[in-house]
Every structure is written in structure tokens, then in C-alpha cells.
Amino acid sequence: MSWQIDAAGWCDAAIAVPSPNCDARPDGVEVDLLVVHNISLPAGRFGGDHVLRLFTNRIDPQAAPGYETLAQLRVSAHFFIRRDGSVLQFVPTTARAWHAGVSTWRERSGCNDVSIGIELEGSDLVPYEDIQYDALIRLASALLLRHPVKEAVGHCDIAPLRKTDPGPYFDWQRIYTTLPQLRPEPLAE
């Protein structure tokens, strides 16, 4: 069965975990970009609820080294795809999640305005699971039906001086073979 994104921007196949870290998109802006990220908390460890807690401002600053800084951040993504393929949704696609930070794509800055952020549970150091690709493709297919999405890129593409995710193990060809309409046109030189 196909996944659906409703008029309010919620995916029927995702577990809703509303985040306060979002706001309205600017008037007249269309969502036309998917940004793929990776995240693991603590770094390189999978499972648990640390990402959920980060995106809902409930992370314990004493839970792991470096969490004191994380506890002060106000960040989110629209979706988080776990290693087992389950999907959490923090922000409706109709709202602006705070996932891209300082970013530029095709001479447009502020990619949060026009994008949907999808975090994969992972790191730059390990391959992703087949079931994560399956979930990502199903989710992207649903997003294409709801929003005028034209491209899917990595966080590394919109913030190349500070981000490397989704990393060298992410198989873009797998996404672009299934959903060729998401393949970015080459950037002008």
C-alpha cells in the first residue's frame, strides 16, 4: 500500500512525535527539495531515544559527552528513518523544520524554507540498511505526490564547508534509479 501525506503534512506511515522546533514557511514558497541527512546519538551508536529527545528539546545534557552543547540546540527534521525502517515524523511537511542550518542550493540560501529534511539513522562510517532505503523511497514517493519536489540532495551538498552527511556509504544511485525525477541537474560552473 502507498504511503500518503495528508493536507496538514503528516505521513500516515510515520509515528508522529511533534517537535516545537519548527515554524511557518515564508508566504508563497513551494517545497521543491529533499535534503537527506544522517544522525546517530551518541555518535556511531544506533537505537534508543536520543535523537527523539534532541528534536523535542528533552535530551539529557549528562547522558553522554558533548550532550551539554546539544541540549542547548533547537533543531529538528521532518522525518527520521531508523535502522529497522520505522519512520518518525517531527514536523508536518507544510511547516519549516530546522534541519539545514546555514545552507545554499542553486543560489538560494536558507534551504529550510524550501526543503523537507529526512534524517537516516546512520553515520558516514557505515552502510545504510536495505530497509532504510525502502522506507526512504516510499516516503519520497509520497512526498512527490503532495509537494512539487524536484530534487533530492545531501546535507553535504547544501552546506559543503561544514557537513558531510549522508556520507560516502549512501547509495544515491539506488534512489535516483527508482525515482529519476529526484536526480539533480548538474550545477552550472
Results as ranks from 00 to 15, higher is better:
Asp23Asn: 15
Pro18Lys: 05
His37Phe: 14
Arg74Pro: 09
Ser76Tyr: 01
Asn57Tyr: 05
Arg58Ala: 13
Glu68Trp: 06
Ile15Gly: 01
Ala16Lys: 07
Arg25His: 14
Phe55Leu: 09
Asp23Phe: 13
Ser40Glu: 06
Ile15His: 10
Phe46His: 11
Asn38Cys: 13
Arg74Ser: 14
Val75Asp: 03
Pro18Arg: 09
Phe55Ala: 13
Asn57Thr: 10
Leu70Ser: 10
Gln72Val: 10
Asp27Leu: 15
Val36Ile: 15
Asp60Phe: 03
His50Asn: 05
Ile39Gln: 03
Leu34Arg: 06
Pro18Gly: 08
Leu34Val: 15
Phe80Asn: 05
Ser40Tyr: 03
Gly44Pro: 02
Gln72Tyr: 05
Ala64Asn: 13
Ala43Leu: 04
Pro20Asn: 10
Ala16Thr: 11
Arg58Asn: 08
Arg53Ala: 05
Leu52Met: 08
Arg58Tyr: 01
Phe79Pro: 02
Gln62Ala: 10
Phe79Gly: 04
His37Met: 11
Val36Glu: 01
Ser40Trp: 02
Thr56Phe: 00
Ala24Leu: 14
Phe46Leu: 08
Arg82Ser: 09
Leu41Pro: 03
Gly66Ala: 04
Thr56Ile: 02
Val51Ala: 04
Leu70Gly: 07
Pro61Gln: 07
Ala64Trp: 00
Ala63Met: 08
Ser76Trp: 00
Gln72Ile: 08
Thr69Trp: 07
Asp60Lys: 02
Ile81Phe: 07
Leu41Trp: 01
Arg53His: 09
Leu34Gly: 06
Phe46Tyr: 13
Val29Lys: 10
Ala16Ser: 11
Phe46Ser: 05
Asn38Leu: 09
Ser19Thr: 10
Arg25Thr: 15
Ala71Lys: 07
Leu52Trp: 04
His37Gly: 08
Leu73Ala: 11
Ala64Glu: 08
Val51Asp: 01
Pro65Ala: 06
Gly28Tyr: 13
Val36Cys: 11
Arg74Thr: 12
Asp60Trp: 01
Asp32Gln: 15
Phe79Val: 09
Pro61Asp: 06
Thr56Gly: 04
Gly28Val: 15
Ala64Cys: 07
Ile15Lys: 09
Ser76Val: 14
Ala71Leu: 07
Ala71Met: 11
Ser40Val: 03
Leu41His: 02
Asp32Ile: 11
Thr69Lys: 15
Leu54Lys: 01
His78Asn: 15
Ala14Trp: 02
Gln62Ile: 04
Ala24Ile: 10
Ala63Glu: 13
Leu41Tyr: 00
Leu33His: 07
Val35Asn: 01
Leu73Asp: 04
Asp27Tyr: 14
Asp49Thr: 04
Glu68Gln: 14
Asn21Gln: 12
His78Thr: 15
Leu52Phe: 12
Val36Met: 13
Ile15Arg: 09
Val35Trp: 03
Glu30Val: 08
Asp49Gly: 12
Ser76Phe: 00
Ser76Asp: 12
Arg83Gln: 13
Glu68Cys: 10
Ile81His: 01
Leu54Cys: 11
Arg74Val: 14
Ala64Gln: 11
Ala16Leu: 04
Asn57Ser: 12
Gln72Thr: 13
Ala16Cys: 06
Pro18Trp: 03
Leu70Trp: 00
Phe55Trp: 04
Glu30Cys: 13
Arg83Asp: 07
Arg83Glu: 10
Asp27Gly: 14
Val35His: 01
Ala71Trp: 01
Ala43Cys: 04
Tyr67Lys: 14
Arg83Lys: 14
Glu30Ala: 12
Ala43Gly: 06
Ala77Tyr: 02
Tyr67Ile: 11
Pro20Glu: 12
Thr56Asn: 09
Asp60Gln: 05
Leu73Ser: 05
Ala71Glu: 07
Ala71Ile: 02
Pro65Thr: 06
Gln72Ala: 14
